[in-house]
Design a protein around this nucleic acid. Structure first.
Lengths: 202, 202
DNA sequence: TGTACATCAGTGAACGCGCGTTCACTGATGTAC
DNA sequence: TGTACATCAGTGAACGCGCGTTCACTGATGTAC
């Protein structure tokens, strides 16, 4: 039956949220439209009233995930956050173990390379935003590279730390933690020391 | 019909090679046993004479890929190679564009996290070997971290550079190249300057 | 404001298709004598 | 060395299953008068 426009918009958002979560958890090819619809409390027919195809839903779910994670990272860290604060939040055991709500680049990175241009655009936008956040929060470091180079390298390197730590966790949890710790230590050096004293919130 | 033991072993190796290549190119869930068998010049029935399941083949194909890429990287760089040489080979446009023969950690990293323990063990072994190669080839750098920390961070960070560069390539090739270039510049600083003059080959 | 009706979000059965896996069969291999 | 036969790698038809997608239908919404 027909529902109000508001309800329809809510349902659409539920589908995107469910897809975003399940794609990260099970992989884009690893979860079906039936399970996504069920997670959103709807039938798969409703999904096709909102999206032309699973691919279209995937593109929107990826974009949603990139924006969500970026917002959590940047706004969650608060004003006056340093690049080190971002690194601590991203390169962490907590993030490694929370794949369903974590960064889509780490959860679906290798699958994204096989998706279409729309998905690639969301990916690129997410990386640019992350790099911009790092750029604004960098400190001084004894590294012969421009600030933009350091910011881009940090945005890419942190993804590798989580991907590798996750892949190893099941067989060698100690090595997995060692990688997280090592990546954080080293990338913090790349990010550099704080330039200005931390401002108090409000 | 029955074939010689040698031929059977060759066929098994062909299946592993075909699977390794196609898993990297299309994803583990993105390619079927029929196509893998065809690529190896056999039928899917032959595949099941050699492997109990697609999962078992996946585990062996991943292990093969990790060993192959490690051998190519380390032995390909030659004696007296520096960590910078390894970085140049790994963090490159050439590697980004050769997904079917490139590092399985970058090609299937996010899928590996969803596979079983056997695959995780191959992954862990590959990362340990890579870190060991970096450890032996590090130079001095103004980074407050142990050599082991630097080696592990490099092994993980380089994966992120390729994953991110690939995900972005389809929509923003310039940004993709910028990331490869930035990651190489920055990670080279982490790897440090050459400690000993390069030995001449032979 | 009240009534008539077109709209369309959502339901659930049904579709064809390709998947991983099984199995009866083949016939060259390789062993036992 | 020659013969008889058990072995088993490989073939290809067939299996059930779950996938993405379609579609006739429902009935509350929301617009036209």
């Amino acid at each position: 039956m027909k529902v109000t426009k508001e309800k329809a918009a809510e349902n659409r958002a539920s589908l995107v949220r469910a897809a975003s979560k399940l794609f990260r958890k099970k992989g884009i090819d690893g979860i079906g439209v039936a399970d996504i619809s069920k997670e959103a409390g709807l039938t798969h027919g409703a999904l096709y009233a909102q999206f032309a195809s699973k691919d279209e839903l995937a593109a929107e779910a990826l974009a949603y995930g990139f924006n969500k994670v970026y917002d959590d990272l940047v706004e969650g860290a608060g004003e006056g956050a340093t690049a080190g604060d971002y690194l601590d939040a991203y390169v962490s055991k907590k993030h490694r173990d929370a794949i369903a709500v974590g960064c889509p680049a780490a959860a679906s990175g290798s699958e994204v390379a096989r998706q279409d241009k729309t998905v690639s655009r969301s990916f690129a936008a997410g990386i640019e935003r992350t790099a911009a956040a790092y750029l604004a929060a960098l400190g001084d470091a004894p590294i012969k590279a421009s600030d933009r180079e350091r910011a881009l390298a940090l945005a890419a390197a942190q993804v590798g730390a989580i991907v590798v730590a996750r892949g190893i966790a099941k067989s060698n949890p100690r090595l997995s933690e060692e990688i997280i710790s090592a990546a954080r230590t080293v990338l913090r050096q790349v990010a550099g020391e704080r330039r200005t004293p931390k401002r108090r919130k409000n």
